[in-house]
Design a protein around this nucleic acid. Sequence first.
DNA 1: CGCTTTTACATGCAATTGCATAGATTTTCT
DNA 2: AGAAAATCTATGCAATTGCATGTAAAAGCG
Lengths: 148, 148
Amino acid sequence: MPDTPTVREAAEAWEALFRCQVGMMRRLQKLAEFKELNMREYDVLFNLGRCPSGSSRLSDLNEHLLISQPSLSRMAERLEAKGLVERRTDPSDQRAVLVSLTDAGRDLQRRIGREHVRHIHELLAPALDSGEMAQLKELTGKISAALD
Amino acid sequence: MPDTPTVREAAEAWEALFRCQVGMMRRLQKLAEFKELNMREYDVLFNLGRCPSGSSRLSDLNEHLLISQPSLSRMAERLEAKGLVERRTDPSDQRAVLVSLTDAGRDLQRRIGREHVRHIHELLAPALDSGEMAQLKELTGKISAALD
DNA sequence: CGCTTTTACATGCAATTGCATAGATTTTCT
DNA sequence: AGAAAATCTATGCAATTGCATGTAAAAGCG
């Protein structure tokens, strides 16, 4: 029967997850697709890409990232300078800035994304079978859900 | 029967794991235990703490971290200046630098570690039961193993 | 409605980071 | 052994980051 976890069990599960993430990241970061855009910047484009409305406030975007608010503010500036995103004041809240992908940004995100996904598959497929992938997705999904 | 995973299944599992990690990190980073030492620095002390020999080459240490080699080199400098680690040339390889925890470093790592583990438990326990923790540990462990 | 508090983003500035490279040692190869 | 290649760390330097703070707009409140 599912027992309530001990501190040790939680710590060991987290450590394993963390190490796994570091190991994956170390390999993924070096790949060619992140030559022109590093993972942090790609992550911004990726998050914008899956915005239902097509645009997002900087502050909302920031919730999904590990970087600080000032850092994101400046990254948005740089991405705009590269022509990958557009920034405009939110008409319904003059304080806020809405960011959205330009066509070039969307293209680049997709191009990098395809390579990225291919490499993820290469790294994970030897380790887990189809059922285990589903388990991992479910377990980590539960944690994310519990954090909100 | 365990099927070989599709690209999509791998991508979804990875995305779920990644999001989970970001969510956890965002919460953990802000906590009081990382006021005097940020997570990256703590991670260095943590890795040194579990070195069987008590010390590690910078380059070996670097394998477990996401930061670059020059960045670790300078972080070691700063940690030494804070009296948390010691650095000495590896007698068996004059190029290498062995880093080890000082007593103060070990104490600080343990003190932070206790709080950290407590908070990890607080975040994870509502999400997963004991058996699920074990599953998560095993799945992520398999991935880490496959990466080597 | 005025006044305080909160929220959202930008900016000054010092600290940290990564890239490219150098310096020193070890390893490999012939 | 001797030359060439690989390995390990350090450093110059520009770019990025975070912290503290500033500015402007919105929300809350008596």
